[in-house]
Design a protein around this nucleic acid. Sequence first.
DNA 1: CAGCATGGTTACCGCCGGGTACCATCTGAT
DNA 2: ATCAGATGGTACCCGGCGGTAACCATGCTG
Lengths: 198, 198
Amino acid sequence: MSRLPATARREQILDVALGVFATAGFYGASMNDVADAVGVTKPVLYQHFDSKHDLYRALIDEAGNRMLTSIGKATANTTDGREGTDRGFAAYFRWVAEDGEAFRFLFSSGTRRDDDFSSAIREITAQAANAVAPLIDVEIDAEHRMTIAHALVGMAEGASRQLVQRGGDFDPDEIAEAISSLAWAGLRAVQPLDADTS
Amino acid sequence: MSRLPATARREQILDVALGVFATAGFYGASMNDVADAVGVTKPVLYQHFDSKHDLYRALIDEAGNRMLTSIGKATANTTDGREGTDRGFAAYFRWVAEDGEAFRFLFSSGTRRDDDFSSAIREITAQAANAVAPLIDVEIDAEHRMTIAHALVGMAEGASRQLVQRGGDFDPDEIAEAISSLAWAGLRAVQPLDADTS
DNA sequence: CAGCATGGTTACCGCCGGGTACCATCTGAT
DNA sequence: ATCAGATGGTACCCGGCGGTAACCATGCTG
């Protein structure tokens, strides 16, 4: 009913749609569902987004950016590895705690499907992995380094999924400390592997 | 064209459908697509499965079982923590290398959506986490223990996703060794956290 | 008070996909 | 030879959903 200026409406749609898709997934939620949740009718959505895909992509980009910039800000101007790790994880888990719907949307809903979307998600996790990779300062080849980096990213993701799924009320700093020390200890144990393939 | 006995046909369907869904996802692949891939027509599928959901559930259960039993067998009769960790990861990454389609189906396709499915997947990861949890022999409360267990499971998942997505030709034992030492070192660093909630 | 831009709604189309009723065909026991 | 039952195919229904055309309403500007 209430009329809104275009930009405000657009933001509102993004905000509401995130929650709807986070809960029901891309295919589970119809555009009518989104429109109902927003409190408008379908054509309004199409005034702001070309297609369902388009809306969804916008959500991925927004949510991904929020996550990456959070971590990015926290780890800027830090050269020390341990400190970078700590701050990175702290920022990450704070993001999860505050922006839990975005986390569910990105990593716990069906977003990792549909090729177009999955590549976008891969892009985001790849960027996260790239941020992690330099922390591994052992002499190993690039491929293994990236694999380990992805393992660490997955670690954070796995912990978060469990936390969010269990209600989402947790102390991010506490968790971050635990996971960060876990990761850091693991990192220091990475051995420069020689060519024993046995 | 060729007629098959019911059990053989059923197995064939499960086998083929796994690949189809792993690639296209639950919503991306229609029952006609599956039928075409099998080389039969739709009603044949419905002779063996009540619904698309039913078929999909059967696939989840089968794939999940294969994974969990692989790990289960490898870690049976092992009391030593380090050895259990090594063997568990080795079994896991071997499973990923051999049964890559099942991995993609479970963790890289959109299976983690649609509530009915996602709970099944949660069940599987939860069981994996339960297998990991005893390795953390520090005095911490159960909740944190489970969170860390999920973190380790996520670690394996993250690494696997990257490996599979990059072609899937990797040496599972080599990777397992690296990830296992990463995990083990991390585990030993888990501190019994006291009640500072600050 | 015209007139126009902006924001919203109603009603509809077309298509795709899950699911099914019904028929054809093969096999094997009597 | 024949009849039963199981296996597979053809053709269809129907509901839902993405997307759109055409039409209202409100308010700002001269």
